[in-house]
Amino acid sequence: MEVRTIKVFTTVDNINLHTQVVDMSMTYGQQFGPTYLDGADVTKIKPHNSHEGKTFYVLPNDDTLRVEAFEYYHTTDPSFLGRYMSALNHTKKWKYPQVNGLTSIKWADNNCYLATALLTLQQIELKFNPPALQDAYYRARAGEAANFCALILAYCNKTVGELGDVRETMSYLFQHANLDSCKRVLNVVCKTCGQQQTTLKGVEAVMYMGTLSYEQFKKGVQIPCTCGKQATKYLVQQESPFVMMSAPPAQYELKHGTFTCASEYTGNYQCGHYKHITSKETLYCIDGALLTKSSEYKGPITDVFYKENSYTTTIK
Protein backbone atom coordinates (compact mmCIF):
# COMPACT_ATOMS: atom_id res chain seq x y z
CA MET A 1 0.00 0.00 0.00
CA GLU A 2 1.47 3.33 -1.03
CA VAL A 3 1.69 6.19 1.47
CA ARG A 4 -0.30 9.16 0.19
CA THR A 5 1.47 12.45 0.83
CA ILE A 6 1.12 16.15 0.10
CA LYS A 7 3.64 18.95 0.29
CA VAL A 8 3.04 21.80 2.75
CA PHE A 9 5.11 24.51 4.44
CA THR A 10 5.64 24.98 8.17
CA THR A 11 6.65 28.27 9.76
CA VAL A 12 6.83 30.18 13.03
CA ASP A 13 7.05 33.65 11.44
CA ASN A 14 5.47 33.40 7.95
CA ILE A 15 8.84 34.52 6.53
CA ASN A 16 10.98 31.40 6.80
CA LEU A 17 8.94 28.60 5.22
CA HIS A 18 10.08 24.99 5.71
CA THR A 19 9.02 22.44 3.07
CA GLN A 20 7.41 19.32 4.55
CA VAL A 21 6.10 16.15 2.95
CA VAL A 22 3.20 15.01 5.15
CA ASP A 23 1.61 11.60 5.44
CA MET A 24 -2.13 11.91 4.77
CA SER A 25 -3.00 8.98 7.05
CA MET A 26 -1.66 10.67 10.20
CA THR A 27 -2.84 13.86 11.93
CA TYR A 28 -0.79 17.06 11.83
CA GLY A 29 -0.33 16.69 15.58
CA GLN A 30 1.30 13.27 15.16
CA GLN A 31 3.69 14.77 12.62
CA PHE A 32 4.41 18.28 13.97
CA GLY A 33 2.79 18.69 17.38
CA PRO A 34 0.38 21.67 17.75
CA THR A 35 -0.40 23.00 14.24
CA TYR A 36 -2.43 26.01 13.06
CA LEU A 37 -3.89 27.08 9.73
CA ASP A 38 -5.02 30.74 9.62
CA GLY A 39 -5.26 30.68 13.41
CA ALA A 40 -7.45 27.56 13.45
CA ASP A 41 -6.09 24.62 15.45
CA VAL A 42 -5.69 21.69 13.00
CA THR A 43 -3.61 19.52 15.35
CA LYS A 44 -6.18 16.70 15.42
CA ILE A 45 -6.95 16.92 11.68
CA LYS A 46 -5.45 14.73 8.94
CA PRO A 47 -3.97 16.40 5.84
CA HIS A 48 -6.40 16.99 2.99
CA ASN A 49 -5.74 17.47 -0.76
CA SER A 50 -6.87 21.08 -0.43
CA HIS A 51 -3.98 21.68 2.01
CA GLU A 52 -1.36 21.17 -0.73
CA GLY A 53 1.09 24.10 -0.75
CA LYS A 54 -0.51 25.81 2.27
CA THR A 55 1.49 27.31 5.13
CA PHE A 56 0.97 26.00 8.66
CA TYR A 57 2.15 27.58 11.88
CA VAL A 58 3.89 25.17 14.24
CA LEU A 59 5.42 25.72 17.67
CA PRO A 60 9.17 26.42 17.81
CA ASN A 61 10.17 22.90 18.82
CA ASP A 62 13.69 22.75 17.37
CA ASP A 63 16.72 25.06 17.48
CA THR A 64 16.19 26.51 13.99
CA LEU A 65 12.57 27.41 14.73
CA ARG A 66 13.43 28.72 18.18
CA VAL A 67 15.94 31.17 16.69
CA GLU A 68 13.47 32.24 13.99
CA ALA A 69 10.69 32.74 16.56
CA PHE A 70 12.92 34.76 18.88
CA GLU A 71 14.18 37.00 16.07
CA TYR A 72 10.63 37.72 14.93
CA TYR A 73 8.67 37.98 18.19
CA HIS A 74 11.48 38.83 20.68
CA THR A 75 10.09 36.37 23.22
CA THR A 76 11.12 32.93 24.43
CA ASP A 77 7.75 32.22 26.09
CA PRO A 78 6.86 28.69 24.85
CA SER A 79 3.12 29.45 25.09
CA PHE A 80 3.33 32.66 23.02
CA LEU A 81 2.69 31.29 19.52
CA GLY A 82 -0.25 29.13 20.60
CA ARG A 83 -1.84 32.09 22.38
CA TYR A 84 -1.25 34.30 19.33
CA MET A 85 -2.91 31.72 17.06
CA SER A 86 -5.97 31.19 19.26
CA ALA A 87 -6.44 34.98 19.47
CA LEU A 88 -6.04 35.27 15.68
CA ASN A 89 -8.80 32.70 15.22
CA HIS A 90 -11.17 35.31 16.75
CA THR A 91 -9.62 38.61 15.59
CA LYS A 92 -9.70 37.49 11.92
CA LYS A 93 -13.52 37.45 12.24
CA TRP A 94 -13.71 41.02 13.57
CA LYS A 95 -14.50 43.96 11.29
CA TYR A 96 -11.96 46.78 10.94
CA PRO A 97 -13.73 49.85 9.51
CA GLN A 98 -11.89 52.99 8.45
CA VAL A 99 -13.29 55.75 10.66
CA ASN A 100 -12.18 59.32 10.01
CA GLY A 101 -9.01 58.08 8.28
CA LEU A 102 -8.09 55.65 11.07
CA THR A 103 -8.46 51.87 11.35
CA SER A 104 -10.93 51.04 14.13
CA ILE A 105 -12.56 47.80 15.33
CA LYS A 106 -16.29 47.15 15.26
CA TRP A 107 -17.41 46.24 18.77
CA ALA A 108 -17.23 42.50 19.63
CA ASP A 109 -15.93 40.38 22.54
CA ASN A 110 -15.26 43.37 24.87
CA ASN A 111 -12.66 44.65 22.39
CA CYS A 112 -13.32 48.38 23.01
CA TYR A 113 -10.01 48.75 24.90
CA LEU A 114 -8.16 47.26 21.90
CA ALA A 115 -9.97 49.60 19.50
CA THR A 116 -8.95 52.58 21.64
CA ALA A 117 -5.33 51.40 21.83
CA LEU A 118 -5.25 50.73 18.06
CA LEU A 119 -6.67 54.19 17.27
CA THR A 120 -4.16 55.84 19.62
CA LEU A 121 -1.18 53.99 18.14
CA GLN A 122 -1.99 55.42 14.71
CA GLN A 123 -1.66 58.96 16.07
CA ILE A 124 1.53 58.80 18.12
CA GLU A 125 5.03 58.22 16.79
CA LEU A 126 6.15 54.75 17.81
CA LYS A 127 8.45 52.10 16.36
CA PHE A 128 8.21 48.53 17.62
CA ASN A 129 11.29 46.39 18.26
CA PRO A 130 9.89 42.94 17.40
CA PRO A 131 9.55 42.74 13.58
CA ALA A 132 6.29 40.82 14.19
CA LEU A 133 4.68 43.86 15.84
CA GLN A 134 6.09 46.38 13.37
CA ASP A 135 4.97 44.33 10.32
CA ALA A 136 1.49 43.77 11.78
CA TYR A 137 1.26 47.46 12.73
CA TYR A 138 1.87 48.54 9.11
CA ARG A 139 -0.84 46.12 7.96
CA ALA A 140 -3.20 47.43 10.65
CA ARG A 141 -2.75 51.01 9.46
CA ALA A 142 -3.74 49.79 5.98
CA GLY A 143 -6.92 48.27 7.42
CA GLU A 144 -5.85 44.65 8.04
CA ALA A 145 -5.56 44.66 11.81
CA ALA A 146 -6.38 41.03 12.74
CA ASN A 147 -2.73 40.00 13.26
CA PHE A 148 -1.86 43.15 15.16
CA CYS A 149 -4.80 42.73 17.57
CA ALA A 150 -3.95 39.05 18.09
CA LEU A 151 -0.31 39.95 18.80
CA ILE A 152 -1.34 42.64 21.30
CA LEU A 153 -3.44 40.04 23.13
CA ALA A 154 -0.55 37.56 23.13
CA TYR A 155 2.03 40.11 24.36
CA CYS A 156 -0.39 41.32 27.07
CA ASN A 157 -1.22 37.76 28.16
CA LYS A 158 -4.90 38.42 27.47
CA THR A 159 -7.55 36.21 25.92
CA VAL A 160 -10.34 37.34 23.58
CA GLY A 161 -13.44 38.41 25.53
CA GLU A 162 -11.55 39.42 28.67
CA LEU A 163 -11.99 43.02 29.83
CA GLY A 164 -8.90 45.10 29.25
CA ASP A 165 -7.34 48.37 30.32
CA VAL A 166 -5.92 50.85 27.80
CA ARG A 167 -3.14 52.09 30.10
CA GLU A 168 -2.01 48.55 30.92
CA THR A 169 -2.13 47.58 27.23
CA MET A 170 -0.10 50.63 26.19
CA SER A 171 2.41 49.94 28.94
CA TYR A 172 2.97 46.38 27.62
CA LEU A 173 3.32 47.69 24.06
CA PHE A 174 5.71 50.47 25.09
CA GLN A 175 7.97 47.79 26.58
CA HIS A 176 8.27 46.37 23.04
CA ALA A 177 8.82 49.77 21.42
CA ASN A 178 11.99 51.74 20.80
CA LEU A 179 11.87 54.40 23.50
CA ASP A 180 15.65 54.42 24.08
CA SER A 181 15.99 58.13 23.36
CA CYS A 182 13.08 59.11 25.64
CA LYS A 183 14.01 60.97 28.79
CA ARG A 184 12.13 62.80 31.56
CA VAL A 185 13.57 64.91 34.38
CA LEU A 186 11.30 65.61 37.36
CA ASN A 187 11.79 67.90 40.33
CA VAL A 188 10.09 67.40 43.69
CA VAL A 189 10.05 70.43 45.99
CA CYS A 190 9.12 70.17 49.68
CA LYS A 191 9.28 73.14 52.09
CA THR A 192 10.74 70.84 54.77
CA CYS A 193 12.97 68.46 52.78
CA GLY A 194 14.20 70.72 50.00
CA GLN A 195 14.26 69.52 46.39
CA GLN A 196 15.13 66.31 44.63
CA GLN A 197 15.60 65.66 40.92
CA THR A 198 14.90 62.33 39.23
CA THR A 199 15.70 61.25 35.68
CA LEU A 200 13.50 58.62 34.02
CA LYS A 201 14.24 56.74 30.80
CA GLY A 202 12.24 54.57 28.40
CA VAL A 203 8.64 53.62 29.26
CA GLU A 204 8.67 55.58 32.53
CA ALA A 205 9.69 58.69 30.62
CA VAL A 206 6.49 58.76 28.52
CA MET A 207 3.80 57.65 31.03
CA TYR A 208 2.47 59.49 34.07
CA MET A 209 -0.33 58.42 36.42
CA GLY A 210 -2.01 61.07 38.56
CA THR A 211 -3.11 63.91 36.30
CA LEU A 212 -4.50 64.21 32.77
CA SER A 213 -3.24 67.73 32.11
CA TYR A 214 0.23 68.00 30.60
CA GLU A 215 0.14 71.76 31.27
CA GLN A 216 -0.57 71.10 34.95
CA PHE A 217 2.32 68.61 35.04
CA LYS A 218 4.63 71.34 33.71
CA LYS A 219 3.39 73.83 36.33
CA GLY A 220 3.43 71.32 39.18
CA VAL A 221 1.20 68.70 40.79
CA GLN A 222 0.68 68.18 44.52
CA ILE A 223 2.03 64.90 45.90
CA PRO A 224 2.52 63.69 49.49
CA CYS A 225 6.18 63.94 50.55
CA THR A 226 7.87 61.12 52.51
CA CYS A 227 7.94 63.51 55.51
CA GLY A 228 4.12 63.66 55.47
CA LYS A 229 3.80 67.24 54.18
CA GLN A 230 2.60 68.23 50.71
CA ALA A 231 5.26 68.54 48.02
CA THR A 232 5.13 69.84 44.44
CA LYS A 233 6.34 67.69 41.57
CA TYR A 234 6.95 69.34 38.21
CA LEU A 235 8.44 68.53 34.83
CA VAL A 236 11.93 69.95 34.28
CA GLN A 237 12.73 68.32 30.95
CA GLN A 238 10.95 66.06 28.46
CA GLU A 239 12.53 64.44 25.39
CA SER A 240 10.05 62.18 23.56
CA PRO A 241 7.72 62.18 20.53
CA PHE A 242 4.63 62.00 22.80
CA VAL A 243 3.51 61.78 26.43
CA MET A 244 0.67 59.77 27.95
CA MET A 245 -1.08 61.28 30.98
CA SER A 246 -3.46 59.06 32.96
CA ALA A 247 -5.72 59.28 35.99
CA PRO A 248 -8.71 57.34 37.34
CA PRO A 249 -11.71 58.19 35.10
CA ALA A 250 -13.21 61.55 36.09
CA GLN A 251 -15.16 64.36 34.43
CA TYR A 252 -12.64 66.28 32.38
CA GLU A 253 -12.93 68.94 29.72
CA LEU A 254 -10.96 68.39 26.53
CA LYS A 255 -10.18 71.58 24.63
CA HIS A 256 -9.81 71.38 20.87
CA GLY A 257 -6.22 71.73 19.67
CA THR A 258 -4.60 71.17 23.07
CA PHE A 259 -4.14 67.38 22.85
CA THR A 260 -3.76 64.58 20.28
CA CYS A 261 -6.24 61.96 21.48
CA ALA A 262 -7.79 60.56 24.65
CA SER A 263 -9.54 57.52 26.16
CA GLU A 264 -12.98 57.89 27.71
CA TYR A 265 -14.06 55.22 30.19
CA THR A 266 -17.67 54.85 31.34
CA GLY A 267 -18.66 52.32 33.97
CA ASN A 268 -16.91 50.75 36.92
CA TYR A 269 -13.92 48.48 37.46
CA GLN A 270 -15.85 45.25 36.76
CA CYS A 271 -17.71 46.45 33.74
CA GLY A 272 -17.21 49.47 31.55
CA HIS A 273 -16.76 50.79 28.05
CA TYR A 274 -14.00 52.72 26.27
CA LYS A 275 -14.43 55.35 23.57
CA HIS A 276 -11.73 57.28 21.75
CA ILE A 277 -11.65 61.08 21.42
CA THR A 278 -9.43 62.62 18.76
CA SER A 279 -8.63 66.26 18.07
CA LYS A 280 -8.57 67.01 14.32
CA GLU A 281 -10.15 70.11 12.74
CA THR A 282 -12.78 69.57 15.43
CA LEU A 283 -13.25 66.93 18.16
CA TYR A 284 -14.34 63.45 17.10
CA CYS A 285 -15.52 60.58 19.26
CA ILE A 286 -14.92 57.10 17.83
CA ASP A 287 -16.86 54.23 19.38
CA GLY A 288 -16.06 51.08 17.40
CA ALA A 289 -17.52 51.80 13.95
CA LEU A 290 -19.47 54.88 15.12
CA LEU A 291 -18.29 58.46 14.68
CA THR A 292 -19.69 61.61 16.29
CA LYS A 293 -18.25 65.11 16.18
CA SER A 294 -18.44 68.06 18.53
CA SER A 295 -16.67 71.36 19.10
CA GLU A 296 -16.28 70.76 22.83
CA TYR A 297 -16.16 67.71 25.04
CA LYS A 298 -16.60 66.91 28.71
CA GLY A 299 -16.71 63.36 30.02
CA PRO A 300 -15.07 60.59 32.06
CA ILE A 301 -11.53 60.70 30.65
CA THR A 302 -8.79 58.36 31.86
CA ASP A 303 -5.87 58.86 29.40
CA VAL A 304 -4.77 61.86 27.34
CA PHE A 305 -1.99 61.73 24.74
CA TYR A 306 0.00 64.80 23.72
CA LYS A 307 2.53 65.32 20.94
CA GLU A 308 5.93 66.40 22.24
CA ASN A 309 9.46 66.74 20.98
CA SER A 310 11.57 68.58 23.48
CA TYR A 311 10.55 70.66 26.50
CA THR A 312 12.61 72.44 29.15
CA THR A 313 11.06 74.26 32.11
CA THR A 314 11.35 78.00 32.68
CA ILE A 315 10.73 77.53 36.43
CA LYS A 316 13.81 78.74 38.27
Rank of each mutant, 00 (worst) to 15 (best):
R4S: 13
I6K: 08
I6H: 07
K7I: 10
V8Y: 06
F9V: 08
F9P: 04
T10M: 08
V12S: 07
N14L: 07
N14P: 06
I15Y: 10
N16K: 10
N16S: 08
L17C: 08
H18F: 07
M24S: 13
M24W: 07
Y28A: 05
G29K: 08
Q30K: 13
Q31G: 07
Q31K: 12
F32Y: 08
G33Y: 06
P34T: 13
P34K: 13
L37R: 14
G39Y: 10
A40W: 13
D41R: 07
D41A: 14
T43R: 11
I45K: 12
I45C: 12
K46F: 11
H48L: 14
S50W: 13
S50N: 14
S50V: 12
H51Q: 10
H51V: 06
H51I: 05
G53M: 14
F56P: 04
Y57T: 11
Y57H: 12
L59W: 09
P60C: 07
D62T: 12
D63V: 08
L65Y: 09
R66I: 11
R66D: 08
V67F: 15
F70N: 08
F70I: 08
E71N: 09
Y73L: 03
Y73K: 04
Y73Q: 06
Y73M: 04
T76L: 15
P78R: 14
P78V: 09
S79E: 09
F80N: 04
F80E: 05
F80K: 04
G82R: 13
R83P: 04
M85I: 10
M85V: 07
M85E: 02
S86R: 14
S86W: 12
A87I: 07
L88D: 03
N89H: 14
N89C: 13
H90F: 12
H90N: 08
H90I: 12
T91V: 08
K92N: 09
K92H: 07
W94L: 05
K95F: 10
G101D: 07
I105M: 04
I105C: 06
I105T: 04
K106W: 04
W107L: 04
W107D: 04
A108R: 09
A108I: 07
D109G: 04
D109K: 05
D109M: 05
N110D: 04
C112Q: 06
C112K: 04
C112L: 01
Y113T: 05
Y113S: 05
L114D: 03
L114V: 09
A115T: 12
A115D: 05
T116N: 08
A117E: 03
A117G: 05
L118K: 03
L119V: 07
T120G: 05
T120M: 09
L121N: 03
L121R: 05
Q122Y: 02
Q122H: 03
I124D: 04
I124V: 08
I124K: 03
E125S: 09
L126V: 14
L126N: 05
K127V: 11
P130E: 06
A132Y: 03
A132N: 05
A132F: 05
A132R: 05
L133P: 02
L133M: 07
D135L: 08
D135K: 10
Y137V: 07
Y138K: 15
R141T: 10
R141W: 06
G143M: 04
A146L: 03
A146T: 04
F148D: 02
A150M: 02
L151F: 03
I152H: 03
I152D: 04
L153E: 03
A154P: 03
Y155V: 02
Y155K: 05
C156H: 00
C156A: 07
N157R: 10
T159F: 09
V160I: 09
G161S: 06
E162S: 08
V166Q: 04
V166M: 08
R167I: 02
R167K: 07
R167D: 02
E168T: 13
T169R: 02
L173M: 15
F174C: 02
H176L: 14
A177N: 04
N178I: 01
L179D: 04
D180N: 13
R184I: 04
V185L: 06
V185K: 06
L186R: 03
L186M: 15
N187Q: 12
V188G: 05
V189T: 11
K191T: 14
K191Y: 09
T192E: 14
T192F: 09
G194Y: 02
G194F: 05
Q195P: 10
Q196E: 10
Q197Y: 08
T199C: 12
L200K: 11
L200R: 07
K201Q: 11
K201N: 11
G202D: 03
V203D: 06
E204V: 06
A205I: 00
G210K: 01
S213M: 01
S213D: 14
Y214D: 01
E215V: 05
K218P: 01
G220M: 00
V221K: 05
Q222M: 12
Q222W: 06
P224L: 13
C225V: 01
Q230T: 14
A231I: 02
A231N: 01
T232P: 01
T232L: 13
Y234N: 05
Y234E: 01
L235F: 01
V236W: 07
Q237S: 14
Q238M: 00
Q238S: 02
E239T: 11
E239S: 10
P241F: 02
M244C: 04
S246F: 03
S246L: 03
A247H: 07
P248Q: 12
A250M: 09
Q251V: 11
Q251T: 12
L254R: 00
K255V: 15
H256S: 11
H256A: 13
F259W: 01
C261F: 00
C261G: 00
A262E: 00
A262Q: 01
Y265D: 02
Y265H: 00
T266C: 07
T266A: 08
N268L: 13
Y269T: 15
Q270K: 11
Q270P: 05
Y274C: 05
I277N: 00
E281Q: 06
T282H: 12
T282P: 00
T282I: 09
T282K: 14
Y284M: 13
C285Y: 05
C285L: 11
I286D: 02
I286M: 06
D287A: 00
D287G: 00
D287V: 00
A289M: 11
A289F: 06
T292E: 14
S294A: 13
S295Q: 15
E296C: 14
E296D: 15
G299K: 01
P300M: 13
P300A: 12
P300Y: 13
I301S: 01
T302Y: 01
T302L: 00
D303W: 00
V304P: 01
V304S: 01
V304Y: 01
Y306G: 01
Y306I: 02
E308Q: 07
Y311R: 08
Y311E: 11
T312L: 14
T312I: 11
T313L: 15
T314S: 12
I315T: 15
K316W: 15
